[in-house]
Design a protein around this nucleic acid. Sequence first.
DNA 1: GTAAAGTAGGGTAATTCGGGCG
DNA 2: TTTGTCCGAATTACCCTACTTT
Lengths: 73, 73
Amino acid sequence: MTASTQQTHPNNQDQLLTPGEVATLFRVDPKTVTRWATAGRIGSIRTPGGHRRFRETEVRALLAELTNDVGSL
Amino acid sequence: MTASTQQTHPNNQDQLLTPGEVATLFRVDPKTVTRWATAGRIGSIRTPGGHRRFRETEVRALLAELTNDVGSL
DNA sequence: GTAAAGTAGGGTAATTCGGGCG
DNA sequence: TTTGTCCGAATTACCCTACTTT
């Protein structure tokens, strides 16, 4: 971690995605993405209205982590 | 030290943000930010012309408060 | 003073929320 | 246990025109 800057949450340099966007990436229902957020499997940012936004970097990382490529030439 | 400094120079940390700026941070429409101000969910400063400005510190605090990071690891 | 961009305000469609059911 | 769907309610997005800011 950076010992010179007090950055509690690196939370404003990533593109945010809507539940529908994330749902499209995972080929699931937006409701499912909501459940993942509720279950703590993925970080989420709530708008003052209660809607959720997700970090694109985190979503991509999760997507890549769950991706199983054979890597054959 | 009393906080009675009038901003004569760009030396203040309470930088004012436009609705568009706040909208970008939350990944919402600028109109939505306006509704938040109207609903009293976020503090706003009105220009003599009626346009709204938002304090960056308040917006960042609200964003951090509504952020739910997954405690992985 | 003019021009371009952003914002305000109103109205309507789409999305999301939350709980519950299969 | 996880996911998809139905419901009602709330929030948000996009349409327009007029005014403000730069």
